[in-house]
């Protein structure tokens, strides 16, 4: 059953999964990082407290976070078609993945940023730093190790989501697992896909941990 055709199918699946995961993670961070920073800065303990903005942004984030991904996947299909031109395939899957992951990323970023010592932020304000300078030169660099660990967690979560998109023909390893393993009852193929997914999660997480440790200057 592991014919040559099967191997090339698996290769394509792996590439599609990596493609979806990486592109979605990057885009989720492009949205989630600034949103997370807005949450931190406008918090009542933040450097620019603004309860109105904080509550509005926080509510949107919570709303999106509370929709199960499998439902979101179907629900945002019109948006997906509008952006990607289709609802099938890896590129189309990126759209719901980003919509689901960005709020998750925002919360991860928020919690990493809140770990930054309040005193250091205060010190930089006392030196005349603006809000933007505090965010870019203090909060993000100081939270870097924590942000990287967070990014590893986000990547593995997105990887898991991407497998789910196989249900609607999203491509990737999950798609293969569902089509061959579930619909054709080829349990062994499903098992192989699961093992590859598990390995990918391990690798991403470990890489994240190593980079985080390497760049953290607090431990020497």
């Amino acid at each position: 059953m592991f014919s040559e055709g099967m191997f090339s199918l698996m290769g394509t699946g792996l590439l599609e999964t990596l493609y979806m995961t990486v592109v979605s993670t990057v885009m989720a961070y492009l949205i989630g990082l600034p949103v997370g920073m807005i949450l931190v800065v406008t918090d009542k303990e933040g450097i620019r407290p603004n309860p109105t903005i904080n509550r509005i942004v926080g509510s949107i984030v919570n709303l999106l976070r509370s929709v199960p991904f499998i439902i979101l996947l179907v629900a945002v299909m019109p948006v997906t078609r509008f952006i990607a031109g289709t609802t099938i395939g890896s590129t189309a899957t990126v759209v719901p993945l980003v919509i689901a992951a960005a709020p998750f990323v925002a919360r991860m970023v928020e919690s990493s940023a809140k770990e930054v010592d309040r005193g250091v932020i205060e010190a930089s304000l006392s030196m005349g730093a603006s809000t933007l300078e505090v965010v870019l030169k203090v909060i993000i660099p100081e939270a870097k190790p924590s942000l990287i660990v967070g990014a590893a967690i986000a990547t593995t979560t997105i990887l898991g989501y991407s497998a789910m998109s196989g249900v609607v023909g999203g491509g990737g390893l999950g798609d293969i697992a569902i089509r061959y393993g579930y619909h054709r009852s080829q349990t062994d193929i499903m098992l192989v896909m699961v093992v590859i997914l598990v390995l990918l999660v391990q690798i991403f997480q470990e890489i994240g941990n190593i980079i985080a440790r390497k760049c953290d200057k607090r431990i020497r």
């Binding site: 005193g119 930089s124 203090v138 660099p141 200057k217």
Partner: peptide, 30 residues
């Protein structure tokens, strides 16, 4: 105005991810 008022703290409040030199550079950077 704050650039004309330096401040030091009980818990030092240095940037932990920057070297001593880069910490001193920080207010100049700003």
């Amino acid at each position: 105005i704050r650039r004309s008022i330096g401040m030091i703290f009980q818990s030092f409040n240095l940037l932990m991810q920057r070297t001593a030199l880069d910490n001193v550079c920080f207010p100049l950077e700003i």
